[in-house]
Amino acid sequence: MIAVVAATVREGLGWNLVDDMRQLFELHFMVNAFRAGTIVAVVAGAMGWFTVLRRQSFAGHALAVVSFPGAAGAVWLGASATAGTFVASVSAALVIALVPRSASGGGDGEDSAVIGTVQALALASGVLFVSLYGGFLNSLNGLLFGTFLGITDDQVTTLIIVGAAVLAVLAGIGRPLFFATIDADVAQASGVPVRMLSVVFLVLLGCAAAEVSQITGSLLVFALLVLPAASAQRLTSRPGSSFVLTIVLAVAITWVALAAAYFSVHPIGFFVTTIGLGVFVVVTVAQSAKVRIQRRGRSGFTSQGLAA
């Protein structure tokens, strides 16, 4: 399968953009890659927006790493790798959610010791499963660093179902979750079930991390989960706008990365990460330049005011 794909892929990038696009979508595996990529990007964007606000990126990363032993273990046991990633990430989310937090951390502070431990254990058992299975190293790269080749129709269906479920739950809890994120004490006093929401959010994050890892590989989920949201929130402080912008950025990054990966020999995870990081760096530099200009403007105003 991979060999056939590889043979058809290398027609190379021409100068005719329309032609290139046509070529991109002629192949069923590429259509599937775009379908899967788009679903994953939307889910990653929506969940990432909250993850960044809640400062739970580290938890998101750990949950993604856990999808690796999930997939490897499932393959070793002869089960579906996709199912394995979901089971593993959601279980890990429950572990992180249910371990009592240190008192000093308050409501939503990450307990980095627990999360770090989960992550280390995940990588260790993943390596164990790979070695138990034996001769499975081909897809090891894909599991860790991402692949867009050979995404089946079934996989796309699974991604759609899980993705829609995640987005539906998120839409249902969106406003109180935002309240609990910004202002946990007042939210709790207003009757928002802060603790329950934080458990639900982590489970959703587990699902999202497992989804994203299907495209970016479990080690590079961070790129699609965190970078678009972090960039968008720097660009605008209006919650609605930055939420939409996050999803747009995530989808755009995924599409460009898929196209780039198709026309080159390098893995998709590399492109997602570097394009996402590129966007983030540009936004950050532009923003700090803007702040500096504003500050100069403001201090000018003050000295005028004093002189008057």
Partner: peptide, 14 residues
């Protein structure tokens, strides 16, 4: 936005 949460932050939905 923080002020608005005081008005409807505890309502389910988006």
């Amino acid at each position: 936005d923080v002020v608005r949460l005081g008005a409807d932050g505890d309502r389910w939905g988006t």
